[in-house]
Amino acid sequence: MRTHLFAVAVGLIVVMAALLHLSPSAFSQTSASHAQGSTDDWQQEFDDVCSSTDYAMALTVDELKQRVSKCDSVRLRVEALGEPQRRVYLKRLQSCRDFYLFLIQTKSDNK
């Protein structure tokens, strides 16, 4: 019984090693697509948060505060990017954030 288990374990190791050896590209592709996926994630988040500036006047103070928080979370991810992406998107993100803050202030003043 013990010999059988050992043989199965060795067999599994051999099969996995063969898979790794035969198709290393499959693994690198997975990690590349993951990296691509995470790039798209921040881009998607950035687009989502900055695309609401045009109708931001119609948002409530709470909704605006949510967007400010979202800007802050996207900012962390943008700061990790390389140049020139980092510089370009940080500036754009800052202008969205400032605008939401400006509206929060305006709406609070008008209450």
């Binding site: 500036t53 045009d54 931001a56 006047m57 202008s95 400032d98 605008f99 803050l101 400006f102 003043d109």
Partner: peptide, 14 residues
């Protein structure tokens, strides 16, 4: 758009 002017150029709207 809105964010060209607010708040960088016009800080207050009251």
């Amino acid at each position: 758009g809105c964010e060209v002017c607010h708040p960088e150029i016009f800080t207050g709207v009251k």
